[in-house]
């Protein structure tokens, strides 16, 4: 079925490293040492966690003030099932908590058995993580405060190393779907067929198909067309140093725009079975396919492009995409 949906998991993740500056860094340094800081605003009140600017007036702020480790819940909700990215493993309450000595609430988790144990106005105290590094999760969370806990700020040790940066990894999972035209193209790839789509106004063919002609601003013709696995190199790049993210590619290697016979817009492919120095603009090439028993619904079925040995195409105009002296009118 042409409309059957192709899907694939797509995970985007990166361990972002954020430099902090003195205010955020000062707060995180405090967390590492077991002290929570706010910042004094121009009206004398204390905001916690601290920002290097007043979030209402944008005035610069810098005076860090130690606040207590006990505070009051101002609002909350129940998080019955921790979500994948959350740094908590048990059900918990999200809460806004105003620490003693601060005038604004901060967001964190409160650990109680159920929502029945939560209430606005309840007193909670910090649970510190054993190993602390200068991160918001140095506060493991909060628990209902024991009456005897004063939560007085601990003394900040002097001469400690300031936190300069913080790692905040992000991981997001998507289900990728390539779209209608590209799905058809990928399906055909399994049969070693290359499909392109046709502009309804100019009749020119593009590979891979995108389902839309940018020249016409219209859908391409519904019937995709079969193209041969031969064409020419429109132009090329030679990567001569290793690219860290592509350990699978050994330099020097050629990445070339391949224009297939019958098409007039190219795509990037890998040069194969040719020395980079011998690659030429206009060189005739054909696809090098994976072995038949390894074919999948993937553009990766084509390992690369190798010279056919035929005479080069003559480029009609070096500035223009897909324009050669012969073969451009099929």
């Amino acid at each position: 079925m042409a409309d059957e949906v192709l899907t694939a998991p797509l995970v985007l993740e990166y361990p972002f490293t954020r430099t902090t500056g003195p205010v955020i860094g000062g707060f995180l340094t405090g967390l590492r040492e077991g002290v929570i800081h706010g910042v004094r605003r121009s009206d004398g009140t204390v905001m916690c966690p601290p920002l290097e600017y007043d979030p209402i007036t944008s005035a610069p702020l810098s005076e860090l003030v130690a606040v207590g480790t006990v505070g009051t819940v101002t609002t909350w909700t129940w998080n019955g099932e921790p979500r994948a990215q959350q740094p908590f493993t048990q059900p918990f309450a999200w809460a806004m908590i105003t620490l003693d000595g601060a005038d604004t609430p901060m967001l964190h988790a409160v650990f109680v058995d159920s929502a029945d144990d939560m209430a606005t106005g309840m007193r909670v105290e910090v649970v510190w993580r054993d190993e602390r590094e200068g991160h918001i999760t140095d506060i493991a969370g909060f628990i209902p405060a024991v009456a005897s806990t004063t939560g007085e700020p601990a003394a900040m040790p002097s001469d400690v190393e300031q936190v300069q940066s913080v790692r905040t990894p992000i991981r997001m999972e998507y289900t990728y779907t390539p779209g209608r035209a590209l799905s058809q193209y990928l399906r055909a790839m399994k049969d070693k067929r290359i499909l392109g789509d046709t502009c309804p106004e100019t009749g020119e063919v593009s590979v891979p198909p995108r389902g839309v002609s940018s020249v016409a601003g219209k859908p391409t013709l519904p019937e995709l067309v079969d193209l041969p696995d031969t064409g020419y190199i429109e132009s090329f790049n030679i990567t001569r140093v290793p690219i860290k993210m592509r350990p699978d590619l050994t330099p020097p290697y050629v990445s070339a725009w391949i224009v297939l016979d019958g098409a007039s817009v190219g795509f990037m492919g890998l040069g194969m079975n040719v020395e980079p120095e011998d690659v030429r603009v206009g060189m005739r090439v054909r696809a090098v396919w994976k072995p038949d028993d390894e074919l999948e619904m993937s553009a990766q079925n084509i390992l690369g492009w190798e010279p056919t040995g035929e005479p080069d195409e003559v480029i009609a105009d070096y500035a223009l995409v897909g324009r050669i002296e012969q073969g451009d009118d099929q």
Binding site: N237, S255, M268
Partner: peptide
């Protein structure tokens, strides 16, 4: 960013 099903031979804008 990675894209499933696709083949990518370039990394970065220079390519």
């Amino acid at each position: 960013l990675p894209q499933p099903f696709a083949t990518s031979v370039n990394a970065g804008a220079g390519g």
